[in-house]
Design a protein around this nucleic acid. Structure first.
Length: 792
DNA sequence: ATAGGGTTAG
């Protein structure tokens, strides 16, 4: 028995088909197909497009045709042309084989097959008829770009209505307005334009930026008596509003109305909102009235939109007047809610609160605006939205308790609670550290069937962190993990920072480890807080170890993290290691900040290598990281300590000429530095400058000056300085480390004949008599010295 | 209703 079914009979083949074609047809239609049939190899050399094309047209099965097409493609010396491609495309499009069709299109483009405009049009039509507009678009573009075909009017000439519609759509997607219009005109001439086609055309227009051209087309359609349908109007109007062309949108709206098409609320909504945005409240209001006349009941969101642009109560009153008196209860509530919103948005929380209480029946509704609208004495009821409006504003103003009691009222009335309200209330309680109540409310939330959200739990978590309740925080984290929620890293970071600030560095590190165990890998910021904590307790090596560990775990350190380490190393006097760190961060692609350089500058200054520090300053100019006042302050201090006061003064003027203004700290550094170098007159000059600028020096600046002036035997200047100190009210207490210096200064002065006014005062160690003593000096200087004054 | 939390000078 022969299991090879017979090849199809080709007796009906056109007479001009070649014998080669016949043989190919026979082989390819035989089942099963034998790709290694020796006959195929014999036929291959005689393959030509003239042979392939008719074969493709004869093969009725798209699979076999594609098989043959592919086989032919791979034969040496054979190349498909646009006609064989089109024959294949024709089969595939008839069989609705989109995937194969798409592949064929890209093959045609890639093979750089030359196409006549007509052939391209044909292929595009095949794509178009499969709805493959995007692909057709791409093909059109690519073929044109590669110069394989220049589309001209022939590309779509002599095509039928459906093809032209596809071509039109393609031009629309390509945003080729003129070409599209040409096709449109041609279709019009053929009498092929119908409203559906117009909509297709215009809908693609609405994606274009050129609103005016689209509008032009609408008008040309009008002239031709082609009516747009309601949907097209809507889409166009929305599109025009999106393109910020309210003018055109309104014109279109007008046309729509004239045609007697009733607009829906969504159209009013978008137009009114846009008018409001453009501050054309009058027109918005007119449109609103128009809507009322058409019997369309405004919804809350629209009323809210309108009122949210009102800033005067008169506008609100006018709007309310227009609301029909016979609206139902639900509508009345909606209206009241927009009144509530208006109050809340216009600094009238009290009025809103009062109205809400009136609505609840807790007091008479004496709201003028509302009475304008509703017959007096009639009851109307608040809903959840009413409460939400008022409660949220109360919370914003910190009125947690009033909010809570409104929330209770709301539940009692039978209004449904919402997650949002629960969250906001819990958030507010947490903000005011009322954790227990917050927890109770969260429990109640659960009991009422609301699952706490990530936000809810993070409010609680944040509160626990601020309280430095490490255990509680960790439990909360576990709870969140169970619910698939993430603890917010800002809270974790704050906890770590606070713990570090309060000397609980090790607990902070422990907490970080626990977070890792819970599966919440803290980020570099959280770790930085801990690194800084370790640095502050001088555990530099531990900090470095932690740093290395987190790098190894794939945590990317940033500039700040490096800065913290550099700071630690510098403060420990390990400046060269700090410098290595800088190089490392640069190798890691980070750009050092001013802070980085400042830290190193300070490090070098404090380790007797001011020259290095100065070099660093000049490098900063090279890398275009402008030094700031801190850079200069460190250097001025460093130069003075290196006994180079002249360099310090030069740098001071450099700083001024660079437009960098010295601050209090800079002045104090310079004054103290000059004192150390014995340049007392200059120090006094800068003190004077400081006073002129209303910058208050710290006590120790006076102390340094006094000590230096006295050791220089400059008693009169010392006296003046002491006077300034008293005038500034900078009396140190006995615990202050400057106290002994000042005490000694006063003793010295009291022992000197030139400052003998002191002799009338007894010196004592107690703070109060010290104050009295200073007061005595002050009085003395005013010429009021005497026991009577001191006794005051 | 939700993106900021960590670093420098006397």
């Amino acid at each position: 028995m022969n299991n090879v079914s017979s090849a199809r009979s080709f007796s009906s083949l056109p007479p001009d088909i070649s014998p080669i074609a016949r043989r190919l047809l026979a082989i390819f239609t035989r089942r099963p197909f034998a790709p290694d049939d020796p006959q195929l190899a014999d036929l291959a050399p005689s393959l030509s497009t003239k042979v392939v094309e008719p074969v493709l047209r004869e093969l009725k099965s798209w699979k076999i045709a594609l098989n043959f097409f592919t086989w032919a493609s791979t034969q040496n010396g054979y190349v498909h042309n646009c006609y064989t491609y089109n024959a294949m495309a024709c089969t595939l499009s008839r069989a609705r084989q989109n995937a194969a069709m798409g592949a064929l299109a890209s093959q045609a483009v890639h093979s750089r097959c030359k196409m006549t405009p007509g052939a391209l049009g044909y292929f595009v039509r095949c794509l178009g008829s499969l709805g493959m507009v995007e692909e057709a678009n791409v093909m059109f573009d690519k073929v044109k770009q590669s110069g394989l075909c220049v589309p001209n009017s022939y590309s779509y000439n002599y095509l039928d209505k459906y093809t032209l519609t596809s071509v039109l759509q393609i031009y629309c997607n390509m945003q080729k307005f003129d070409m599209a219009l040409k096709v449109f005109d041609e279709m019009y001439d053929w009498g092929w334009v119908d409203p559906h086609m117009c909509s297709v055309f215009l809908l693609s227009f609405s994606k274009w930026d050129d609103v005016d051209k689209a509008f032009e087309l609408v008008e040309s359609m009008e002239v031709r008596n082609l009516r747009l349908n309601e949907k097209t109007f809507c889409v166009l109007i929305h599109g025009f509003v999106r393109a910020s062309r309210l003018d055109r949108a309104l014109q279109l709206f007008d046309k729509m109305r004239k045609l007697g098409i009733p607009p829906d609320i969504a159209l009013y909504d978008v137009l009114i909102e846009d008018l409001c945005k453009n501050k054309e409240l009058e027109d918005a209001f007119k449109l609103y009235l128009d809507m009322n006349e058409h019997g369309i009941v405004p919804d809350f969101s629209l009323l809210n939109k309108l009122t949210s642009y009102f800033s005067e109560e008169g506008q609100l009153t006018q709007l309310l007047k227009e609301i029909p008196k016979d609206v139902d209860t639900a509508a009345k509530t909606l209206v009241c809610n927009s009144v509530l919103s208006f109050y809340v948005n216009n600094d009238g929380l009290d009025k809103a609160y009062h109205l809400l209480r009136g609505m609840m029946g807790h007091c008479a509704v004496d709201d003028l605006n509302v009475n304008e609208l509703l017959k007096t004495g009639e009851r109307f009821y608040p809903d959840t939205t009413s409460f939400t409006i008022v409660i949220n504003d109360l919370l914003k103003k910190g009125e947690t308790d009033t909010s809570l009691s409104l929330f209770r009222d709301m539940v009692q009335i039978g209004c449904k609670q919402t997650v949002l309200l629960y969250n906001n209330l819990i958030g507010s309680l947490c903000d005011s550290n009322r954790l227990e109540e917050a927890n109770e409310l969260m429990q109640e939330m659960k009991d009422s069937g609301f699952e706490p959200t990530e936000f809810t739990r993070n409010c609680i978590y944040g509160c626990l962190c601020r309280r430095e309740d490490v255990l509680g925080a960790l439990n909360c984290v576990k709870e969140m993990r169970l619910h698939g929620q993430e603890p917010w890293i800002k809270h974790s970071s704050q906890l770590i920072k606070q713990l570090c600030d309060h000397g609980r560095v090790l607990e902070a590190c422990e907490f970080l480890n626990n977070m890792v165990i819970e599966g919440f890998l803290p980020d570099i910021v959280a770790y930085s807080a801990a690194l800084n904590g370790l640095i502050k307790i001088r555990e530099v090596d531990q900090a470095v170890e932690l740093f290395r560990g987190l790098c190894a775990r794939g945590c990317q350190p940033d500039v700040v993290a490096y800065n913290i380490l550099i700071n630690g190393l510098c403060k420990a006097g390990r400046v060269s290691e700090a410098h290595d760190m800088l190089n490392e961060m640069v190798r890691n692609g980070l750009v050092p900040s001013v802070v980085t350089y400042n830290l190193l500058i300070d490090g070098w200054c404090k380790t007797n290598t001011v020259d290095q520090a100065m070099l660093c300053l000049s490098r900063m100019y090279e890398v275009e990281t402008k030094p700031n006042v801190i850079s200069y302050t460190s250097l001025i201090d460093g130069l003075c300590n290196a006994r180079k006061p002249d360099d310090a003064l030069t740098l001071w003027s450099d700083m001024l000429s660079k437009g960098c203004a010295p601050n209090r700290i800079t002045y104090m550094a310079l004054i103290q530095g000059l004192c150390k170098c014995g340049r007392l007159n200059e120090a006094l000059e800068y003190l004077r400058q400081m006073q002129e600028k209303d910058m208050k020096p710290d006590t120790f600046v006076y102390a340094s000056l006094l000590r230096a002036l006295l050791s220089d035997q400059n008693l009169s200047a010392a006296l003046e300085t002491l006077k300034d100190l008293v005038k500034e009210g900078q009396f140190p207490c006995p615990q202050d480390r400057n106290y002994p210096i000042l005490k000694n200064a006063i003793i010295q002065m009291s022992q000197d004949a030139r400052t003998r006014f002191f002799s009338c005062c007894k010196l004592s160690d107690s703070a109060s008599s010290f104050t009295l003593l200073l007061f005595g000096i002050q009085s003395n200087l005013r010429g009021f010295c005497g026991e009577s004054t001191l006794a005051r």
